[in-house]
Design a protein around this nucleic acid. Structure first.
Lengths: 350, 350
DNA sequence: ATGAAAGCGCTAACAG
DNA sequence: CTGTTAGCGCTTTCAT
């Protein structure tokens, strides 16, 4: 513009004011080693000139990038974006920036990102995966701290921040029990997932605490985490001798399939059979009846992940647990009611 | 490790090989000015030493960051993540990295990000907003190219990549017409949104092309883009004289509300009334019947945004349109059928 | 095909 | 409170 073609640097400012670059640098960063009046002059001229810090130069010098990376396994998954939201909230507060890469379920792409980002001098990395069950050992030998968000790292060397599914399974089951249900069926997700075994353990614990008998005939596992599987298992379950008064599904999608089967059998939800889901996906508000479910604490998991990572970066890494569990909460909608209210009867208040 | 505490730089390599740093630098970048054998030696030692380029130093020197920024208005919106996926696909191919910031619907936060990221020497920026209707003039006076993704920038100086809602409105309406429907009701989203006026224009165009009369009594606007509004409008519509045989809703959520109203009135979807939504949200597959809808081309919008931005960065900015529209497609599910099939009758094949 | 030297813009001793 | 100096790690003329 009015200045030369040259970039505007602290040197431009120092020249204009007859100061040294170091003083300008200090003033800009708010060092107490600079007279208030001087700072003001510097700030004014900086604005006048349209000066902007060159953060490459700064980072080169200080060896601090103030950047962390997020690598996702699948950004398409609706859980992922809520976790990212949580991460972003705390990085923004702590003046960190986020470099984002999508692994796309492709191991090579993940590795390439990891290497490229380390060259970018990132100070830490959060890996968000919602399905992974394999150890990703290339995250182990990095020079920077790594956190696994949502999924288990499967190694104590990388902290995992995950939902407390044991607690979730417990509160969902307890809710049904308190509604008077005793014959509760469980249509869990596929066996072999931590999410499944934890939710199951929580349900079992609730049964124990309330002195109910665990009936294996009412416990099922879906082949997949989807409605088709839930539908299939529910249909099969309903063809047997004992019919439950309530069903706890492994996740919301399974629950939708369960409700399909129930509808097909002419059973009313919730009057004949209550249904509880898990995750609190967007669909819960749009299926009819609206689905009561356990909310996954995704934003909170993101926040926690970022907090732990940043503490780690700043050396406060005493007492970091290998696994941090974050509790969700029960979201009560319209798919459950007290035992004793049959079809055609009036629903109880609340 | 076995080396000193010092960082491993090209200098470390050059020492070990008795070469100059410049040669090492060239070798590393695959310059043709270096003998093949020399390159191999350099590469081997680099690997041995665990060398990683310091991209700050490189960027400081070359003045190219190879970073673009994404600022979102609301990452929580399920559209946003699909757009990001599209952007990421093309940046990854072109060796750009993404710095991500969430504006959170907070103008100040957005501005702060913009400034901070410019200091990071980002080469371009994509702003993803799904609701914005105000001009964000602070994106105008930047030294770097900016693209608005999904929403209108409202100024020709910033290219907008948006869904072709005129086309979408057209194909949805045409589909219903071809199914034999003539008395089609429209429960659009709130007036004042481009998405609304475009979809409406598309529908009108289809009516013209097929010589149907546009009946104002069958056209409604919701107060909000949600099911409650859809429900309300549908209920009111159904209380009037003329009952439509099909309803085109402003988006999927409105469609869910419409279907609620229909169910309440004892009308069967699709046998009594067909319903078409818009957006292709996840819910479409989980409501019953599954909702036929127009898919928003979100990944494609993301890709297009990134392509245009990168071209822009590389100076290929001749012929960049102020507005680029990307076409979606009709996703046929179970909520529509040919006129003439009444309740209790058998559904037609396919 | 390789090397020497300078410098990108900033910060951090050190000196005063 | 301010200035001098050096150097972060890399690329890039300019020589050879």
């Amino acid at each position: 513009m009015d200045k030369n073609e040259k970039n505007i640097t602290i040197y431009s400012i120092s020249q204009k004011l007859g100061l040294s670059p170091s003083t300008v640098s200090r003033a800009l960063r708010g060092s107490p080693l600079v007279r208030e009046e001087t700072r003001k002059r510097v700030l004014r001229v900086a604005k006048e000139l349209g000066y902007a810090t060159n953060s490459f130069a700064r980072s080169l010098r200080t060896k601090k990038s103030h950047i962390i990376a997020i690598i996702t396994e699948d950004i398409t998954n609706p859980f992922t974006s809520l976790i990212i939201k949580g991460i972003e909230e705390v990085t923004a507060k702590n003046n960190y920036h986020i470099i984002y890469g999508n692994g796309d379920g492709n191991l090579n792409k993940e590795k390439r990102y990891l290497n490229a980002l380390i060259q970018r001098q990132i100070e830490g990395l959060i890996y968000i995966s919602t399905v992974s069950r394999e150890i990703k050992d290339f995250y182990l030998n990095t020079s920077i701290p790594v956190i696994f968000s949502y999924s288990y790292s499967l190694t104590p060397d990388i902290p995992s921040i995950i939902p407390d599914d044991l607690y979730g399974g417990y509160i969902a089951t307890e809710y049904l029990i308190k509604l008077g249900h005793k014959r509760i069926a469980f249509i869990f997700g596929p066996a072999g997932y931590k999410a499944t075994t934890d939710r199951l353990a929580g349900s079992k614990k609730a049964f124990e605490d309330y002195n109910l008998d665990w009936d294996h005939r009412l416990v099922r596992h879906c082949k997949e985490w989807d409605s088709a599987s839930g539908y299939k298992e529910a249909l099969d379950l309903l063809s047997k001798d004992i019919i439950p008064t309530a069903i706890f599904a492994g996740n919301d999608l399974i629950a939708v399939g369960v409700m399909d089967a129930l509808r097909e059998k002419g059973l009313n939800v919730p009057k004949d059979i209550s249904v509880v889901g898990y995750d609190d996906r967007e669909v819960c508000g749009y299926v009819r009846p609206k689905l009561t479910t356990v909310r996954l604490p995704l934003v909170e998991i993101g926040k926690k992940s970022a907090e732990i990572l940043i503490n780690h970066i700043n050396g406060k890494n005493e007492g970091i647990e290998a696994i941090t569990r974050v509790k969700g909460e029960l979201i009560i909608r319209d798919s459950c009611c007290s035992l004793g209210f049959k079809s055609k009867e009036v629903m109880p208040e609340k």
